[in-house]
Design a protein around this nucleic acid. Structure first.
Lengths: 221, 221
DNA sequence: CATCTATTCTATTTATTTATTGAATAGACA
DNA sequence: TGTCTATTCAATAAATAAATAGAATAGATG
């Protein structure tokens, strides 16, 4: 094997891993799987794909060793093969958000369209606020995802049942809502509703997976 | 814009950045550009591409804002748009090397093919050794790349003129050779030659760009 | 201004990727 | 054992990406 053959082989193999990530649907699937395991149908529903199409993309990710399966009864659950995969997604997200102005534009357009000034606080600030007991932290993801793991001291208030949860929440404290990550809009929706109801609410910049990856305190049941 | 449209747009834009990296030749080009700026022809020569083809790939990278141009006389020099791009490459490299066993295999096959036990030391070890004046550090990249920037206290001993350089190098000290990065074979070739001539030589795990990115001492002229 | 040359563009062919549909499969459970 | 069902496979069509070769361009230099 000469130098050129060696380099060709190495870069071709390397590009296979990148190609597995080089598709909008697969990026969305990885982002979703960072919350935990999901069946093919759940993945299809969450991403707007047909089941067959979702399955194909999952095969693609599985071949690249980025996801793994785990059979439970009649269902097959897909999950990330390792935390490092999410790390790569964060890397790629940084790249996209830094060098593709369009990404930033789409996000700010969407948030402005919601007619809310979506201020966000970061993980470090939240840690201090939680220590001082200044805030109530709301996990607005579906309950199932909360139960798999959530930020220490967060309450489960799924976005679609937010109305019910409000009764228990006093208005005098500041609320912080978080969800799956920067491209998940549950927290935005929650802040919009809460603000409209007279609460003082902001979103957390980080989603649950990033929070956990940074080593901040989490709880599993 | 509804939720689905928003997500579709975000992930499509995000995938554009990834698609720019999802090609073996473009990965190799990025790896090369981490050494500094190169003309289209230099890039073509270094990667085994035709000039027209290299130019096309460069346009692709330019559209994704990953590389920038800088005109000098009759030539156009391409360089990475920011250090962060190389960061993304490292991320992707980690992903590939961790989850694609084939990458590791190709590398070890190639090194074994050279009939040398290619031991390597890491940056931290080297720093200590340099402080204790225990080693001579050799930059075996082309002289031009050395002159753009190199590791503090390294000598320029380009691989194709290594024979000439040897006269000045005493045999009693250990030699450490480094080059462009993990997929560059100059350091391997150098270690093979040096060992064969009776020197005690090893390669540095990191290439120059990684060394610099980690904040270890460098020198520019 | 004319020429030279590094680079880019255009057109074409070939290869790869994606979505869709309907059929096939593999495992669970009665 | 047979049925049920979640998932995958296979075939096709449509879209996108890549390599090649030759023409075009833009800027430098005399």
């Amino acid at each position: 094997m000469n130098k050129r053959e060696f380099k060709d082989k190495v870069y071709i193999e390397l590009s296979k891993a990148v190609k597995a990530l080089a598709n909008p649907h697969r990026l969305e699937i990885i982002d979703l799987l960072a919350q935990g395991q999901f069946t093919v149908e759940q993945i299809a529903n969450n991403t707007g794909l047909s089941v067959a199409n979702a399955s194909q993309h999952l095969q693609n990710l599985k071949n690249a060793k980025l996801v793994q399966i785990n059979r439970k009864g009649n269902f097959i659950n897909y999950s990330l093969a390792s935390e490092q995969i999410y790390n790569a997604l964060i890397c790629v997200r940084e790249l996209g958000m830094t060098f593709n102005a369009e990404v930033k534009k789409v996000i700010s357009d969407f948030r402005n369209g919601q007619q809310e000034d979506m201020r966000a606080i970061d993980a470090e600030t939240l840690v201090t606020m939680l220590e001082n007991d200044e805030v109530i932290l709301l996990d607005v993801r579906p309950e199932e995802e909360y139960s798999r793991g959530h930020i220490h001291r967060a309450l489960s208030t799924p976005i679609d049942k937010l109305g019910n949860s409000l009764k228990k929440i006093p208005k005098r404290k500041m609320l912080v809502a978080y969800c799956r990550g920067p491209f998940c809009v549950y927290a935005d929706e929650a802040v919009a509703i809460l603000t409209q109801k007279g609460y003082n609410a902001v979103r957390l910049e980080e989603g649950y997976p990033e929070w956990a990856l940074k080593g901040y305190p989490v709880e599993h049941i």
